[in-house]
Amino acid sequence: MATTLALLRASHFAPTVAVTAVVVVLTVIARLEPGTAAVLACAVLAGQLSIGWSNDLLDADRDARVGRRDKPIAAGQLPRALVRRALVVVVAACTVASLAVGVLSGLVHLLLGVGSGWAYNLGVKRTVWSWLPYAVAFGSLPVLVWLADDRLPPGWIVAAGSLLGLGAHLLNALPDLADDAATGVRGLPHRIGARASVLLALSCLTAASAVTVLGPAGAAPGWAWGVLGAVVALAVAAARAGGRAPFRAAMVIALVDVVMLAARGL
């Protein structure tokens, strides 16, 4: 049980579940067959597990130097050999499941989705281009879902996904800015600072809300305009308040964006 819990913690469990849940929502919007949707969700889950485990495995020495007790591998609670074996299993499962739903969909997932995550872990996160893997990976999610049914997604869903990805990157980096800087990691959030990162995240997530309202064909319903107005008001109020308010507001807006995506896509 202790080993299982350590593996879950090392997988970046919350983001892994969140991304998989977003894909499940997208399969509903795309009206995929339940069997195809289930296989696709398993493929994405396995891919996200591989990204999380590879991240902590590659960063284990760096995390140990800064005393990260919340990282099971760096803290010596999880053997590296076990994580490597787990990686082999989930990468194999991800490859088989991805290609099982279709060659094109599978290649998009493996190359753009999982590939972007691994590229980030392998070094892109130390550059000014640290945001790009997130934008590409999140933007590719609707593409791989729609291609599973031999269709292309609406462009507005891809744009909203990429904006959500950029916002997610900025928010995800914030708690580790000091530890990252101490070990030579200088991605975009480190270069522009915490305050600018939060404000940029708010802007990206608010833009995703606007795309979700304006993107679909036809006139947007009144409730969608109301939600967009509330999102803009929240973002402006949080930016003026400062402190932790912008971060909390960004998390709320990210959740609203996913709900809006589902509501407008159906």
Rank of each mutant, 00 (worst) to 15 (best):
M1R: 04
M1A: 14
T3S: 02
T4C: 09
R9P: 03
H12W: 01
A14E: 14
V17I: 12
V17D: 03
V28K: 01
A30W: 04
R31G: 06
L32I: 01
G35M: 11
A38I: 06
A41W: 11
A41G: 15
A46K: 09
I51S: 10
G52F: 07
G52H: 13
G52T: 08
S54P: 01
L57H: 10
A60L: 01
D61M: 00
R68Y: 08
R69W: 00
D70P: 02
D70T: 07
I73W: 06
A75I: 02
A75M: 05
L78W: 06
R80L: 04
V88L: 15
L99Q: 07
S105Q: 04
S105H: 08
G106R: 03
L107R: 04
V108G: 02
L110T: 01
V114C: 05
S116P: 05
L122I: 05
G123V: 05
K125Q: 13
K125F: 02
Y134E: 04
A135K: 08
F138Y: 15
L141P: 02
P142M: 14
P142K: 10
V143H: 07
V145W: 11
R151Y: 00
P154R: 04
I157H: 01
A160T: 05
G161S: 10
G165Y: 13
L171E: 12
A173K: 06
P175G: 01
A178E: 15
D180C: 05
A181W: 07
A182T: 15
A182V: 08
T183P: 05
V185D: 10
G187W: 13
G187E: 09
L200R: 14
L200F: 09
A201W: 12
S209A: 15
A219E: 06
A219M: 06
P221F: 14
A224M: 11
G226D: 00
V231T: 13
L234Y: 05
V236H: 06
A238E: 07
G242T: 01
P246E: 11
P246V: 03
F247D: 03
A249W: 07
M251H: 10
L255S: 15
V256C: 12
R264V: 05
R264Y: 00
R264P: 02
